[in-house]
Amino acid sequence: MKSATTSMNLRAPHLARKGDELSLGFYKFVFMTPTILVMMLVVAAPLLYSFYLSLHEYIVTYGQGPFIGLGNYVLLMGREFAGVSWVTMKLTVSVVVIEFLIAFSLALLLNQSWLRFREFYLVILMLPMLMTPVAVALMFRLMFNPNLGIINWLLSLVGIPAQGWFGDPNLALATVIFVDAWTETSLMLIMLYAGLRSLPQDPVEAARIDGANAWQILRHVTLPTLRPVILVTLLIRMITALKSYDLIYILTQGGPGKTTETISFYAYRLGFRFLDIGQAAAVSFILLIAVVALTLVLLRILRER
């Protein structure tokens, strides 16, 4: 009897656990289903539909045309797409490098123990991130206005002639990069500063006791321990830079010529100006593949961390 009771006592919790697991699984399924359905509806369905469109000839004015396989992708493999890809690459590399150098320097400065009013500086430095890109772009468009803007006026005070800025093929991309750096550096700064604050102080103290100077501590202690944070920050910024659109739209419309036309703006132009939805979808998919590849790298780094 005892053994039977024991056995029952032993089995009952087991059965109960199994029942719990079943009901837990059931509840998981019930609670997850609406989310999955909504995600399928708002993410997967449009994505699949746009892939479907990218395989068709579809000019809005004429309506949807026939299935053309990879025809839209093949059409893109020309000088034009190469040009916008090159601009996107120049823009991405420039903004990521410039913004990282500025953000990392500022983060190191903010992390100094002797610095007073740190929070105040942090709030000020975060302000560009809090502004909408469109407002920032309009503000800079006015400031860089060749005839009425304050920048040319300031330059004129020291005898420098008026520059065309967004209207000068040699300066337009550099001016866009400047505006982008002003806007987006804050995000990198916050991430890097948070990383620095979370680093253990013991290795730094140990290095200091061993006689390392500030540069040696930065190079041999801070940078290696901060490496994963730096990589994540760089990748996130690279992904957003690859998709640059809003600043370009307001500041230059991709011009002069195509000197500031990015892949995203090219996709917009194909879709909304040429009304060629098939080709616009194809460009978007190529960009998506690049972004997904970078995201996979990011996820791998996060896993390794």
């Binding site: 206005n145 060749p146 005839n147 009425l148 040319n152 002639p161 008026a162 520059q163 065309g164 800025w165 967004f166 209207g167 000068d168 093929p169 337009a172 230059t252 011009g255 002069p256």
Partner: peptide
Amino acid sequence: QPGALGANFDDVANA
């Protein structure tokens, strides 16, 4: 005018 390559008709009016 300087920057004419980035100018629209509002900029022409302003000039």
